[in-house]
């Protein structure tokens, strides 16, 4: 197990490094940030000066190596826009994003698991049809449209909930529902199919032969087995949520990392964009790592060496 942990940590590091390379390259393809930082009437000398100041005049691989070297020293670069460290810009917005993502995730799991399990126990019943119709809608409605419709209904027409900004639980509801909708649907459908497979297994029959109550048969014997693929699915949804947050945060003016990222991309604020992606990928890789460890607790047959 220990060897596995070391090996996996090393692999994770390579993944993150790969991401930085790709992001770095793509960003530099988007154009010259000095176009946006200087007023239109600025001359070529001023431009060269700024390029030199920001280190943009060096060959791209040198820029990249310096970037990595600086990260190792804890320096993520200065935001071109705000003239403050990019890392603190991102970290300042991170709690808001974590709050939103966690709320959306918890909402998804709490809603999706019962729908999936009940649908699986009674396939083709009214519950099942209703649940799966809901899931189909959840997966096919675009996030931005759903967000706008929710604002229209609950904020504009009914006036029950605020449409923008971060505050108490009331502010959290609409963005969390919008962000969690797709995942809820995906997890519900996955739970259903996974449970249907497991409920057919011989050991479920054994549990029934023992005269166990249906609760124990379904929630203990079936669900623990079905939970492994569901967990995989859920961890993938985390990644989707991190990217979905970009749209959701923009719609609801949620002061999170997603919104910062969008603004930074518009402004070609390279250090901020790079830091956002780096932080997001560390979180995602970390979650996947954790999930792999959780597998060993759910299924004793999974052993890492």
């Amino acid at each position: 197990m220990q060897r596995y942990l070391i090996k996996r940590s090393f692999q994770s590091l390579i993944v993150i490094l790969g991401i930085t390379v790709i992001v770095f390259m793509i960003l530099h393809l988007t154009g010259d940030p000095t176009d946006l930082l200087l007023p239109p009437e600025a001359g070529p000398e001023e431009r060269e000066l700024l390029r030199h100041e920001l280190g943009l005049d060096k060959p791209i691989y040198v820029q990249y190596l310096e970037y990595i070297k600086n990260i190792c020293h804890g320096d993520f670069g200065q935001s071109f826009r705000y003239q403050t460290p990019a890392f603190s810009v991102v970290m300042g917005a991170l709690p808001a994003t974590i709050e939103l993502t966690m709320a959306a995730m918890i909402l998804s799991i709490v809603v999706a698991l019962p729908i999936g399990i009940i649908s699986a126990i009674r396939p083709r019943s009214y519950y099942d049809t209703l649940g799966m119709t809901f899931a189909l809608l959840g997966q096919s409605i675009p996030v931005y449209w759903a967000g706008l419709m929710l604002i229209l209904l609950f904020a504009v027409t009914l006036g029950w909930l605020p449409s923008t900004g971060r505050g108490g639980i009331k502010h959290l509801i609409l963005p969390a529902v919008t962000l969690g909708m797709f995942s809820t649907a995906a997890i519900a459908r996955f739970t259903r199919s996974s449970m249907i497979d497991v409920l057919d297994a011989d050991y479920i029959r054994t549990a029934r032969i023992k005269g166990l109550s249906e609760h124990i048969v379904v929630l203990k014997h079936a669900f623990k087995n079905a939970s492994i693929p569901v967990l995989t699915m859920t961890s993938l949804q985390f990644g989707r949520m991190l990217s979905g947050a970009v749209i959701t945060e923009t719609i609801f003016s949620w002061p999170g990392v997603g919104r910062i990222a969008v603004q930074a991309i518009y402004n070609r604020d390279f250090p901020v964009v790079q830091t956002v992606v780096l932080v997001a990928s560390v979180i995602f890789v970390g979650i996947n790592f954790m999930v792999d460890i959780i597998y060993t607790y759910l299924d004793p047959r999974i052993k890492y060496t």
């Binding site: 297994a201 011989d202 050991y203 029959r205 054994t206 549990a207 029934r208 032969i209 023992k210 005269g211 166990l212 203990k220 014997h221 623990k224 087995n225 759910l298 299924d299 004793p300 047959r301």
Partner: peptide, 20 residues
């Protein structure tokens, strides 16, 4: 079931729950 009737099935490989 259980107390009065019990059944041992054909395939012992699959009739025990793998995760308990």
């Amino acid at each position: 079931r259980g107390n009065r009737l019990f059944m041992i099935s054909q395939d012992p490989m699959t009739s025990l729950n793998p995760v308990f």
